[in-house]
Design a protein around this nucleic acid. Structure first.
Lengths: 332, 332
DNA sequence: CTGTTAGCGCTTTCAC
DNA sequence: GTGAAAGCGCTAACAG
């Protein structure tokens, strides 16, 4: 039913291999016959089977992508950029979301392997340590996003990220700066917390453990976290949130308490998702260069896929984007 | 290097087919030998090649997904649900974003076909009409999301969607209700506009063409649209926006003009993305049942993939979710 | 219950 | 330049 290379060969009166060569633009074929064959193939509605080709060449031109959930805008923007980068190089993305289920994290990687993807990019905050042996086996090669402690990774410098935020807030006169983490993103959250502590110390402020909270992640985590923190006797004047989602949730909690942002409370996020300029007030945040992250990850993955490894990990420096959600500390 | 079924067979002292059967849990194998083989396979680190299996069975257990862009939360939430539904049925998603480039829309479909996906789900607002022949060819079978005029589609009823919104606004006393469309989503926008006009008439209000605007889509489209509408001499008291993104952009423009929502201006969106409850004020919107949309699409796609077609299109009824962005029309 | 034998659709030496 | 033939790793009749 589907037309194969053999059908085209018969129709064109040439051999299988000639058709194969003509269709893959191998230079050895006489230009004239190549054109003729290509025309015939097109006329017959021939569509090459990537499956068969994959079997024969042991290359699928597919990149596996393992993520926690596409519902997170940071992730989906990242994947979006990866797809863009992949397409430019003739690759497609095989997607696998594992929703935080540790069972499925492993299953996901195995699944991608079975599909014989040429490489996989993992953008899941919860990579279990069991991954390590699989990753080091290099079959398929794996590159991780925002996991700087793993071998092949491209990551934003989380310490710098929270430092930028803290410095900004300190410069605005804030003294009681809280941190709302995300248990969904344990390791990253821990790094950002470190950066927060370090730069607080550097500014001569002691990190009050009352002001550090581990939210559950997402909008809800931010909302609950902020609700709790703002109800304390000595509430913070500024909130450093794990990410923009958390920050948005926190702003909601603040609004519910009747606090005005940034007059009564400053809020800063991390990521700079495309929504950030559109919150009200617009969100001050520390931007991760998602496109660069994506491109580097794809490039690295393909490099490994072509056996040209190992490659050094890359660390990107985030940048502060000041918008309307931060302001001078209330004088009261 | 990679261990194949033949290696396992040799190691286990049985034939290829026995291993194949044991590994795919075919009932005919003696339980004991099956277990033995499975153990040996596992020990050897055997990982079945989906590629080879695909060639042999002509089923890849892969679903192609064609979208405009994952950067749109509605889309990414949809894809997220589709992945969930697919996994439950033993399928994976092959993703293809085509960023509105009509060239790539066709290329994308062809690409997915070459990968021999069992079926494809298109959630791209801009399906060019050239698709139709390809779609009807049924190779691979295609199901469309939110394209009710196409053969196999699962769609939210856009007329009902905007009617619900308009009725809600009219009930609140609004008379000057504007509509901000999205040129990025031409056909859907047109349907929602129809619903808007119809229900306006039904309410005895004439649709003022001054109040209908075709935004460019996304946050920016909403912002620009609202900026323009609100600057008019006889500005609207309520805005029906193409989607939540547009609504969020519109709210920003309103804030920039110093308008208070919902006191001075009511805003309603469509989609009910997960962000909607977290805007300030929380967004009143018409919810599409994204999970249902996704599940039906996947189910329909798989049904077609198994040759059990054709299937009837499905229309889902949206529902109004009243939050804080709408209120009584200003009495002034 | 298990083994033998053809393919699935394509690429790729190796000859001519 | 082009053709013939041998796989890639697996499944699926068909026999036993």
């Amino acid at each position: 039913m589907t037309v194969t290379i053999a059908d085209v060969a018969r129709e064109a009166g040439v051999s299988l291999s000639t058709v194969s060569r003509a269709l893959s633009d191998k230079p050895v074929i006489k230009a004239q016959t190549r054109l003729r064959i290509q025309r015939i193939a097109a006329d017959m509605g021939y569509s090459p089977s990537a499956i068969a080709r994959g079997l024969a060449t042991k290359r699928t031109h597919k990149l596996g992508v393992l993520v926690l959930s596409l519902a997170d805008p940071f992730v989906s923007e990242l994947v979006s950029h990866m797809d863009q980068a992949a397409i430019e190089r003739g690759y497609s993305l095989l997607l696998c979301t594992c929703g935080g289920d540790p069972q499925r994290e492993m299953a996901g990687l195995e699944l991608l392997h079975q599909q014989r993807v040429d490489a996989v990019v993992v953008a899941d905050p919860a990579v279990p340590d069991k991954f390590l042996p699989l990753i080091q086996a290099g079959e398929p090669p794996v590159v991780l996003i925002n996991k700087r402690h793993y071998p092949c990774s491209v990551a934003t410098d989380n310490l710098v990220a929270s430092s930028l935020a803290v410095q900004h807030l300190v410069a605005l006169g804030h003294r009681r700066i809280a941190f709302i983490g995300s248990s969904r993103n344990r390791t990253e959250s821990a790094e950002r917390l470190d950066g927060y502590r370090l730069s607080l110390e550097k500014a001569g402020l002691s990190a009050d453990s009352q002001l550090v909270l581990d939210g559950e992640g997402g909008y809800g985590g931010g909302e609950q976290g902020a609700r709790f923190l703002l109800a304390q006797p000595c509430a913070p004047t500024a909130l450093l949130c794990f990410d923009d989602l958390t920050a948005i949730g926190a702003m909601r909690a603040a609004a519910a308490r009747g606090l005005r942002i940034p007059d009564d409370l400053s809020v800063v996020g991390v990521d700079d998702i495309s929504l950030a300029p559109y919150t009200s007030p617009p969100l001050t945040t520390v931007a991760q260069d998602k496109e660069q992250l994506a491109r580097l990850a794809v490039t690295m993955a393909l490099t490994l896929a072509h056996g040209k490894g190992p490659v050094p990990g890359q660390i990107l420096t985030p940048s502060l984007v000041v918008r309307g959600s931060t302001g001078p500390a209330p004088s009261a």
